[in-house]
Amino acid sequence: MPPSPSVIGILGAGKVGTVLARLALAAGHRVLISASGSAERIALIIEVLAPGAEAATTSEVIERSDVVILALPLGKVRSLPVDLLVGKLVIDSTNFWEPVDGPLPEFTADPRGTSEVVADLLPGARVVKAFSHLGYHDLDERPLPTGHPDRVALAIAGDDECDIAEAATLIDELGFEPVPTGPLATGKDFQAHTRAFGYPLTPQELRDAIANPIEREG
C-alpha cells in the first residue's frame, strides 16, 4: 500500500468526526478539525473528545491537510469552499437521514448514490466513499491490528485506483480491513438502508452484502 497522509483534516466534530480523530491520532497522524460554532466551543469539544487534535477553521483544515474527511451533516456539503478542495483527496463518510437532514432535493431526487452527488457538489475534488457504513460506536470500539482474524471490514468506493489505495492505507492504519468495491457508483450499495449498512462485518460478509444490497426497512 502507498504511504498514508500525514495530516488528516476532519470537517465535523460530532460523534463520527471525533472518533476518527482519535483513531488517526493513535495511528500517529496529525489531526485538524473544524466544526460549526464558536472557536472556543470547538476547542473545548476537541480537548475533551479528541485530545491532541487541533481546532481550525474549515479553510485552514482543507489547506493544511493531506486528506479531508467529510464528517459533517450532508446538507452542509454545498456550503464548503469548493475551490480549496480541488485536487484534494476527500473521503466522504456522510449519510442521508431525512429526519435529520431534511428533504435535500439534490439527493432525494437523484437516483445515484449520495457520494456521487457529493462529488458533483465538489468538482475537482478526488472523492471516495468510506467510513460511512459502520456506526461511530463500532468505529470506536472495534479497531484491531493488521492481520487480526476478527478485523471488521470497511468498504471503499472511488473512481481512481490511486485514491482508493491511499484511502485503504489509512483505513488499515486506523484498525480496519479495507474492502475496495469499485467505482464511486458502487457506494450506493453500502449506503444507508442497505444490507451492508450498520453492522460490523468480516470482509467476506461485507462483499456478500454488497453483492446483494437489497434495502432494509427503516
Rank of each mutant, 00 (worst) to 15 (best):
M1C: 07
S6G: 06
S6Y: 00
V7L: 08
G9H: 12
G9M: 08
G9T: 11
I10V: 13
A13K: 11
G14R: 11
G17A: 10
V19I: 12
V19H: 08
L23K: 15
L23V: 05
L25T: 06
H29N: 14
V31K: 07
I33Q: 03
S34D: 12
A35S: 15
S36W: 10
G37I: 08
A39Q: 13
R41N: 12
R41P: 00
I42N: 08
A43F: 07
A43R: 12
I46G: 05
I46D: 08
V48S: 05
P51S: 07
G52S: 07
T58E: 14
S59W: 00
S59R: 14
E60T: 14
E60W: 00
E60D: 14
I62K: 01
R64H: 12
R64S: 14
S65H: 07
D66Y: 10
D66L: 08
V68R: 06
I69K: 04
I69T: 03
L72K: 05
V77E: 02
R78N: 01
P81V: 11
D83E: 15
L85W: 12
V86I: 13
G87W: 13
K88P: 04
L89A: 03
T94Q: 05
N95H: 05
P99F: 07
P99C: 06
V100A: 09
V100E: 08
G102H: 11
G102I: 13
P103G: 01
P105W: 10
G113T: 11
E116H: 10
V117Y: 06
V118S: 02
V118H: 04
P123I: 05
P123V: 03
P123A: 04
G124H: 11
G124S: 04
R126D: 02
V127T: 01
A130P: 00
L134S: 02
Y136H: 15
D138H: 13
D140M: 06
D140F: 02
E141R: 12
L144M: 13
P145S: 06
T146D: 12
G147M: 09
D150N: 08
A157Y: 04
A157D: 02
G158A: 03
G158D: 03
E161H: 12
E161V: 14
E166L: 15
A168I: 13
T169S: 14
I171P: 00
D172E: 15
E173P: 05
G175T: 09
G175R: 09
G175W: 10
G175S: 09
G175E: 03
F176T: 03
F176E: 04
V179F: 09
P180T: 09
T181Y: 00
T181L: 15
G182K: 10
G182I: 09
P183M: 05
L184N: 02
A185E: 13
T186S: 08
G187F: 14
Q191W: 01
A192T: 08
R195E: 06
F197K: 00
P200C: 03
P200T: 03
E205I: 04
E205S: 04
E205Y: 01
L206P: 02
R207F: 00
A211Q: 05
N212R: 11
E215T: 00
